[in-house]
């Protein structure tokens, strides 16, 4: 498996002189299986525009484009690049879009993702796209993707339905775990509060602990994990609990507990400058030479080979 980052930022693109090193595009990851000529894309944040351009220059000359796009969820920063993904405009392109759908008004994945392509938002309507596009409402499950690739999906802890992905191929494991935060007991724990309920409190503790364990089983022993680490623990505790993003401290400890070999901290806070990231790297990143996980901040253009 060959993994390349085309967008690593959370929330909104933030190009500029202070984000040149790590990059300003929102989430997009390319996953290549070179020996079987398969391409999977994870998320269609603004980074997918550059990936599309690369595919037009490098893949198209070898034959028509066929790919699967797996969306972690449909928040805007993860789908905003979709209309700018040039292969969608070719009649020869075949693309299957997979992702979870949050129960709202019986919307389908097609109307949620394609809904940004109406004249009020964009000059081309979704129905006018030339490519052959199929949509697949994805749930928590295990899938055989053919050619020896398996995929396990897992609901994450985010304000809307969001999936983590675990790809396995030839004994190697690659996981994505964003956007998410640790499960906590969100029910009132103060017995003096009028709304306190002992049953909810106890169950909240048990379920949160159990779900964190399930999450760790999902990541267990992975060769490479891309993990949401938008905040520091201090930032998280100060005002970001419940926003659906993790702290660097938490994911670093999780990587150790789950015996993850390599981990990219991902979904960077858009306000974070390159200088600040370099400073944080001194505290949170490590080479893995001590036998623990190798941990680094994901950078646009970075490539990992498993």
């Amino acid at each position: 498996m060959r993994i390349k980052f085309w967008g690593v930022r959370g929330s909104i693109p933030c190009p500029g002189p202070q984000t040149v090193k790590y990059g300003g595009n929102t989430a997009c990851i390319e996953l290549r299986f070179d020996d079987i000529d398969r391409l999977i894309i994870i998320d269609a944040g603004s980074g997918i525009r550059e990936l599309g351009n690369y595919m037009m220059a490098n893949d198209l000359p070898k034959g028509s484009i066929e790919t699967d796009l797996y969306l972690s969820h449909t928040h805007w920063d993860h789908i905003m690049g979709f209309p700018f993904f040039v292969p969608l405009y070719l009649p020869t392109t075949k693309i299957r879009v997979h992702g979870p759908v949050t129960h709202e008004v019986d919307d389908t994945l097609e109307t949620i993702v394609g809904g940004q392509m109406t004249y009020r938002y964009f000059p081309v309507r979704h129905v006018e796209l030339a490519a052959n596009i199929a949509y697949d409402h994805l749930k928590e499950d295990r899938f055989d993707l053919g050619d020896g690739i398996t995929l396990t999906t897992k609901y994450l802890n985010h304000p809307i339905l969001c999936l983590g992905y675990r790809f396995e191929y030839k004994g190697k494991v690659f996981c994505t775990s964003y956007d998410t935060e640790p499960y906590t007991n969100i029910f009132c724990t103060d017995p003096s509060d009028p709304s306190y309920d002992e049953g909810m409190d106890v169950e909240g503790e048990v379920v949160a602990k159990e779900q964190n364990q399930v999450m760790e089983q999902f990541l267990e022993g992975a060769d490479f994990v891309v993990y949401d680490a938008q905040y520091t623990q201090a930032e998280y505790e100060d005002s970001k609990v419940g926003w659906g993003h993790s702290s660097m401290e938490y994911v670093v400890e999780t990587a150790k507990r789950c015996r993850i070999k390599k981990m990219a901290l991902f979904h960077h806070e858009p306000l974070r400058t390159d200088k600040q990231m370099d400073d944080l790297a001194k505290d949170y990143c490590c080479s893995g030479e001590d036998g623990g996980p190798e941990i680094f901040f994901a950078r646009e253009g970075m490539e990992i080979i498993l």
């Binding site: 609901y155 985010h158 339905l161 909810m200 949160a208 779900q211």
Partner: peptide, 17 residues
């Protein structure tokens, strides 16, 4: 249990339902 559902699927999902 609703408490379990709220933690597993999130507050917003259960609110929508």
């Amino acid at each position: 249990s609703l408490a379990r559902a709220i933690i597993m699927l999130g507050l917003n999902t259960v609110k929508n339902l």
